[in-house]
Structures are given as C-alpha cells and as structure tokens.
Design a protein around this nucleic acid. Structure first.
Lengths: 338, 338
DNA sequence: CTGAAAGCGCTTACAG
DNA sequence: CTGAAAGCGCTTACAG
C-alpha cells in the first residue's frame, strides 16, 4: 500500500548522507546539533522507522528475544506464571524496540528449539524457564555462545540467573501447618527432575525434621490439576490413615486434590487441610479459598528481560534475586480436628 | 562462538554459485538433480541454516506473524483461549520456518502495536483476536495493507476471518436451562463493546423469547472472575427475588459468581444454577463442576495460522468456519427447586 | 542448467 | 562534523 520510506528518503529530505541519518537517529556522536534536529524532523515528517530487518542484517542482531515453553498446553492454560512472566518481559522489551518470539514445545523438544532459534539468527538471547536438574539447555546455550538468562535455576547454575527465593515462603507455609497442630503432613510434589520439585521436597522434609516430625507420604504429580486429583486418590482412599494436611507443590494440583477429596467424601479443610503454591488468581475463588505461597512471575519477567538485554549488549551482569515469596493464608488450612 | 557459516561457505564447498545454493535449498527450479543433491549435502555437512535476517531483507519478508493481546494480565492468566490458540498457531508455523511474535498491550493500545509491528517490518501478517464492534484494527490493517486474519469476527467483517460458531452452542445451553424448568434466567455478560458479548446477549434474549419467557436481569462484567463475583452481589443480594439460573458469558465469571453466591449463603445449584462458557480445564474441578459450552481455541489457532500464511503468500483465501461449540453439562446446572 | 551482479535497508569503519 | 563506500546474508532477475 503505502510506499515504503527508507533511510534514503530521509537523507534526501534532510539533505545529508544516510550515515548521518543513522548516527542521528541512534544518538551516536558525530552529528552537529542542528543537523541532528533537521534529520529527526525529516524522519518524523516522513514517518520513518528504521527497518528491523536492515538494521538486523548490518548490526548482526535480530532485536528479538526468545522464550520456549515446554509444558503441556493444559498446564500453560491455567498457570499464572506464563502470562505474568510474559507481561513482565514485554514491559521491558517494548520501549527498547525488542520483540518477544514465543514458541511452545513438546517435552524434550526444548533444546532443539533453542538451537534452531539461534541458527536462524532469529533471536539475540533466550530465557530459560522451568528448569530441570542438569538442564541440557544450560550446556547448549553455553556451547552456542547464545546469551541466556535462567529463571529460578538452582544454586551454582552456569548461566546468569534471576531468581525468586521460594524456599523461605514454602518453609513458612510448612511451619505454619505444623504450628496449627498437624503431625501427619503429606506432600504432593511436582514433576520429577524439575529443580523446584526437588527444592520443595527438601524444604518440606527439612522443615518437618527441624520440628521433630516425621515427614508423611510423598506423592509425585506433574503440576496438572488432574495429577492433583490422582494424588488425592492415592492419599485418601488407601488402607492407611489419611494425612491431616497435604501441602501441594502448586495451586493447580491443590485444586485437583480438593476436588477429588470432596468427591471422596472428605470435607476440606475440616477433614484434611490442603495448601498450594503460586498464588494463582483463581485460588481466591475456589471453595475453600486456597492457602498458598504467592510468587511474582511478572516481576521475574521484568528483571529477567532487563538482565538479558544487558547480556546481549555485552555487559557483565550478576545474578539477581527479587523479593521472596510469601505465605497467603486462606480457608483451606485449618487446625486438625482429630 | 562457532564461526558463522553462510551461503558462501556452502557454495564454495559444493563448488557452485550462491544462486544455485539458494535455488536448491528453496526447492526452486533451475538446478539439476545432481547439483541439488551435492548442495544439500554440503549444507547439511556444514550445518547451514539460511539466516532469516538475510533472507528477510532480500525477500522483503520477516518470516514472522504477530499477535497482540490486549487483555488484563489477570484474565490472560486463567483464560484458556490464550494458551490454546498459541499452541495451535505454533504447530502450523514451526514447520514453515515462521515464528510468532507476541505482544501484550494495555486497553486501546492494540492498534498502535499492530502499526508498529508493521512499520518495523517485524511481521508479515497479524492475528486479530478479542474483536470489538467496529474494531479499529480492521480499518488499520486494511489501510496498511497488512495481511490479517480476524478470529471470531462478526458477520460481514472486512478482513478474512476464521470463526467457531458460538451461538449454536450457547443457544443449546439456554434452551437446556429452559427445558429444566427455569423461568427466571439472568445473564452475566462480558465487556461491553466486544462482539461475543453482543452475540451472547442476543442469543440469550432470542432463545428465551422463542420459548415465550421474558429475559431476566442482565448484568455486565468484564470476563474477569472478580466481575463475576460482583455480578453475584448485584443479582443475589438485591431486594427482588433472585433468579433461579444465571448464564454467564464465560467460565471465569461463572466461577467468580459461584464463589460469591456461596459466600452469600446460596447453595449452587440447588438455590441457583450457574453456567459458564469456554470449557476451561478447571471447570471440571470446581465445586459444583461447571456446566459450560466447550470451545476449541487450539483448532482456531491452527486454522487461523494456515489462513494467514496463505494470505501472506498472496493466495486468495475464503473465510473459514471450524466445527461449532457444544454444550457440556455438569453439576452446576439443575432443575429449579422453587 | 549455472553464474555474475544488483539490491534489500541498514551500520560502521574510513576519509576528508 | 560529514560523506562515500563496503558489508551484513540472502533472493532475484538477467545473461550465458
């Protein structure tokens, strides 16, 4: 439709060379104040926006950052992390002319996708979320020399990391459960191999040990609501006595657990207390309202973006910790009745 | 890190010109079978992947499609459409070397974002979702000459559209409510000005009229859980009699409504039946399990992507309708007790 | 069937 | 302070 306006048009209009236009618009030195003003005026009048394509080819950048999500669509659907994180990232990228390239990958496809994004020169850097123990993506980006930021990685991760401490909040939660008088406290863990699955199990165990209580049953789920429901089957319909409290590794599993527990005739929280982790919005609206630990995906996204942008610019960057998670008590946690 | 391998390296390795390499790798004619095979072998051995940057500059394409979501992060967080739609889009793009550029925008920021994506030459086409009546983005993309596909647009939309009929499913739902004996049926509508808000109100009204029933109260929400909760306040704690059934324009509002209704002392569905729309995964896990209409965001995304890709290629494309939504009855809908 | 060359829209040394 | 020119990595007429 509209004829494409290029740097040549602006240069002609302002009666300078394209080099001056480029320098002026990018705030580089070597242009007099007057010339710069004239150029900017021309650019604005012509409505010129540097083409990210031309700029990219020449500057060896793509001005885009990549995020590959390797989760089941069902979990992404209801998981707060996804939208919040992206919103945080976006807020930082937009003003700097960067775009976010998003991909959804199947299990284990993740590394290939990152490699492809790099080979294509599609992105200048990537975010790595949902980290597993010995995550292969860490070695990959290192090998490729691809700038990357790891989100909530384990201690000593080889690449730059942005984290929100989740252990303190989760420990606080477990201590609160103990404080209320529970002595048989089960844990519904996340997917095996994930770093935060591991961390939550450790915190659950050590907090109980510290309180002189023997950890209750441990059941693995996969963070989906469905797996929380299955965990309820295993913990509540077995031969042994049911736990009085069940701390779940995320809110979705807690919701699934509560639903199934109710179907099995349990009254939550009178018969069994159930807690989640994440602080999803819906937790406030289910019955009973969910006691959980509130995380900050949006802030994590914003800080991760800032950090990655610096890395792409070649700046040295230190790991960053944002304010820790905190306990949010609602109705699903109560002192034990028996 | 690794030295960048370009088309020149492949040409040298295969002992041909770069033009032949380009032709061979893109499946264009003008290369003998032998030469093509040799070139492909060289490319593979060297691990060459055409740079999307060089290709984009030359081919006047960016090999990316844009999606701007102008919703409250809170709604995106729990809305199934988002993740499902993106998953569907992604499935189609990946094999064709296209990427998805995702942006989150504030209210009314949408058009500017689309314009910017186009000026930057960042994308070759865009998806337009969450359409409002007289959506300004329709005129914008037309003016820009930017290929675009509208999702669930109204009839007679000026740009190519991919739709899933929602009226049939919603009408079926309302008829079912009537059939169970309800006579005072309220509607919690979505955000004013949205096309599907309008459509659902019309279907609710016309279906009741056809059954000889006067439509009950109409309350506007904004698709958020919170607004569903507020709607419950208005419909259930007023002076007049409460409706015996409330059909909500989406699942999140229904969940909010149910939560608040319970707090107000109502038993759902015995005192009041509540239904949703969308078919989000969690609907199965709330108490009572939600009666709703199931939509197919993933399929919508896949078809929208195929359509947009064709448009970008300059092909003529007709509007497309995927299989319609359908009613899913669960526990939140019951015959009226009074 | 194959190659030399121009061009896409920028940035970046390098001269002046 | 300013400009002419090369180069980024491809695609695409155009010759041969």
């Amino acid at each position: 439709m509209s004829q494409r306006v290029t740097i040549l048009d602006v240069a002609a209009d302002a009666d300078v060379s394209i080099a001056s236009v480029s320098a002026a618009l990018n705030g580089r030195p070597g242009v007099s104040k007057d010339t710069r003003a004239r150029i900017i005026q021309s650019a604005e009048r012509l409505g010129w926006v540097p083409s990210v394509r031309g700029r990219g080819l020449s500057g060896k950048r793509s001005y885009a950052l990549g995020l590959v999500l390797a989760r089941q669509p069902e979990v992404i659907e209801s998981d707060p992390f996804f939208a919040g994180f992206i919103a945080g990232v976006e807020g930082e990228l937009q003003s700097r002319g960067y775009a976010l390239v998003l991909q959804l990958a199947g299990r284990n496809e993740g590394p290939d996708r990152y490699r492809q994004l790099h080979l294509d020169h599609r992105v200048d850097g990537v975010f790595i979320t949902d980290m597993s123990v010995d995550d292969p993506r860490v070695a990959l980006v290192t090998e490729l020399g691809l700038p990357a930021v790891a989100i909530n990685s384990g201690p000593g991760c080889a690449i730059t990391s942005v984290r929100q401490d989740q252990n303190a909040g989760f420990g606080e939660l477990v201590r609160r459960v103990v404080e209320l008088g529970h002595r048989d406290i089960a844990h519904v863990a996340g997917r095996r191999g994930m770093i935060h699955t591991r961390q939550r199990i450790d915190v659950w165990r050590s907090t109980l040990h510290a309180a002189g209580i023997r950890p209750g049953s441990l059941v693995y789920g996969d963070f989906s609501t469905e797996s929380g429901s299955r965990a309820a089957d295993r913990l509540l319909s077995g031969p042994g006595p049911a736990p009085t409290a069940v701390v779940c590794a995320n809110d979705l599993m807690a919701i699934g657990f509560i639903a199934r527990a109710s179907s099995l005739g349990y009254d939550v929280p009178r018969d069994v207390s159930v807690t989640g982790f994440d602080g999803i919005h819906l937790g406030r609206y289910i019955r009973p309202a969910l006691t959980t630990v509130v995380t900050s995906p949006r802030e994590l996204g914003a800080e991760a973006a800032k950090t990655l942008l610096k890395l792409v610019d070649g700046q040295a960057v230190a790991d960053l910790d944002i304010a820790p998670t905190h306990l949010l008590e609602r109705d699903s946690l109560l002192a034990p009745m028996r």
